[in-house]
């Protein structure tokens, strides 16, 4: 903890800093998903009583409250339904600008959030004109994969 001498131009404050590390247990369902990513596979689960297919996989269906029954591999392609360009990021986050998209992989009922490339970040550019919603995109794999969501480096437009 350090004290800031910031009393001339603003109300007096004192700095507090947290530097804590956690190991979050993935559990059985997400462990399998992450192992799939390491092997360049996108694994999903399906609800046992409805048609919903979840990616990232879930052990239970959020609509039916029934367990999901079985794994399936989804294609690496899908439709970019919506994205935003983060022109301004935050401390400790990725270097702005970057584009985050919601991607409907073929066969999935949910959206997968991930980075998308193919947007011109020139200030003032119409980002949606360059990458219209509905654009087909596919996963680009990271060279080194360790079993985490960024094993997919990003999604890029097909063709």
């Amino acid at each position: 903890m350090t004290t800031t001498a910031n009393t001339e131009t603003a109300a007096p404050t004192q700095a507090v800093h947290w530097d804590l590390h956690y190991d979050i247990h993935l559990g059985e369902t997400w462990s399998q998903f992450m192992e799939g990513l390491r092997q360049k596979k996108i694994l999903a689960t399906g609800c046992s009583s409805c048609v919903r297919v979840f990616v990232p996989p879930q052990a239970y269906c959020e609509s039916c409250f029934e367990p999901t029954d079985g794994w399936r591999e989804l294609p690496h392609e899908g439709t970019l339904e919506v994205f935003t360009v983060a022109w301004h990021g935050f401390t400790g986050g990725p270097q702005a600008p970057y584009a985050i998209g919601a991607i409907r992989l073929d066969g999935a009922s949910t959206l997968l959030m991930h980075w998308v490339v193919g947007v011109d970040f020139t200030p003032g550019a119409d980002v949606r004109e360059q990458l219209p919603f509905g654009t087909r995109v596919r996963a680009v794999w990271a060279e080194e994969r360790t079993g985490q969501i960024l094993d997919i480096a990003h999604f890029e437009p097909v063709g």
């Binding site: 935050f90 919601a102 959030m113």
Partner: peptide
């Protein structure tokens, strides 16, 4: 960002208005 979904979505770098911007765009 610390309150955004760990493991899956937090690494992508979203704060409050980034999340809000999805609805605005759609």
């Amino acid at each position: 960002n610390t309150n955004s979904p760990m493991i899956i979505e937090q690494p992508l770098g979203m704060g409050g208005y980034h999340m809000g911007a999805f609805a605005a765009s759609a």
